[in-house]
Nucleic acid binder design. Structure first.
Lengths: 195, 195
DNA sequence: CTAAGCTACGGAACGACGTTCCGCTTAGCA
DNA sequence: TGCTAAGCGGAACGTCGTTCCGTAGCTTAG
């Protein structure tokens, strides 16, 4: 999905080197200026031309995906284990969402990029959803089956909602995305009928 | 805040005419292509040059503000009356938020523009907050005083949260912003102690 | 070790954007 | 009817993501 080729073999040495340099440079640029860092800046940081960036990563979004791939996969993995580790499905969902929020607000502007203006980040957007959607779906299903939360909110809607709430969450003391996401998740709860 | 001059008098006739045409053209363009409609398109629609747009409205955001000014003022007004018309402060808050959501999702991409990438729409963003923030604050305060909702969510955070939830809410059957905002507002509730 | 051949490179160029600038048009007044 | 400044149009600038193409240089066959 990212532009990276599969084999390290069968490719020229400088190509492999440049791809590595590009990933490092992009990661650094994203930390310094957020995910909206211009392609030219990333290319300059890596000491290559813009053309090289686009041969390795067909589009800006593919580069972002490649940089954050590991962490997203970790998120997917965490979703699998959460259900076993937490006492209730709702607690598992809450914890997993919290991890997701962590990820989104840690990377400057990732959330913004995720649902940015239009098609520019479509690849990023759909990759995130494809990867994390099923995880969220499973957690939600479990909580619904346990009668803990309302059943009319789909995984897609919840993920997008959480993602949207995380937009522009840095550098603003008056807006704490984590708290608001907490409110949203609390709003999912159904009244406890067990008493 | 919008670039519009105060008096209709003391200005050349063509200037007044052009400003009117610009407002109409912008409104039409926003309906057709969303608030992100290019300035050139708006200028063309109005039959003027881009320079004319910028003399009347120093920045894109000012034009957006001018176009939606009436509706935002109506929102402010509604906030004042909601408290009297609804049985509880929480109901008033919920109804007002619903109106706000209506406004945001009706205008294609207004929510997106509100919290877009960076400084491009800063003027729009802060104008909205300045205008609607106090209204929200009053509704929240009333509901907190009545013991209906938690007290740790400020007006600013709530407005931004709702605005963010409305981002990209059109053209996507899987994502209903109104429902999610409903969940968020439900999450504000404190358990009823009156029994 | 050399030379051919093709992979991968650099960066100029393109088209979109918001915004600025300036020479000319023209409304409004005497 | 002419003067003058308010107002106009749109070329031009700097930003962006992306494309293109001439060429440098890695790789491998001989």
């Amino acid at each position: 999905m990212a532009g990276t080729a599969e084999q390290g073999t069968r490719r020229r040495a400088d190509a492999r080197r440049n791809e590595e340099a590009l990933l490092d440079a992009a990661a650094a640029a994203f930390v310094a200026s957020g995910v909206e860092a211009p392609v030219r800046d990333i290319a300059a940081r890596a000491g290559v031309g813009v053309g090289t960036v686009y041969r390795h990563f067909p589009t800006r979004a593919d580069l972002v995906v490649a940089v954050y791939r590991h962490q997203v996969e970790a998120c997917v993995e965490a979703g699998r284990t959460c259900l076993d580790e937490e006492p209730t499905p709702y607690a598992a969902l809450a914890r997993w969402i919290d991890m997701f929020v962590d990820f989104l607000v840690t990377k400057h502007g990732l959330a913004t990029a995720l649902r940015s203006d239009s098609e520019r980040f479509d690849a990023l957007h759909s990759w995130f959803l494809d990867r994390l959607g099923p995880v969220a779906a499973r957690l939600i299903e479990a909580a619904v089956d346990a009668g803990e939360i309302r059943s009319d909110i789909g995984a897609y809607a919840l993920m997008r909602g959480v993602g949207n709430l995380c937009i522009g969450a840095e550098n603003d003391p008056r807006y704490d995305a984590r708290t608001l996401v907490g409110v949203l998740i609390a709003g999912l709860r159904l009244p406890d009928r067990s008493g």
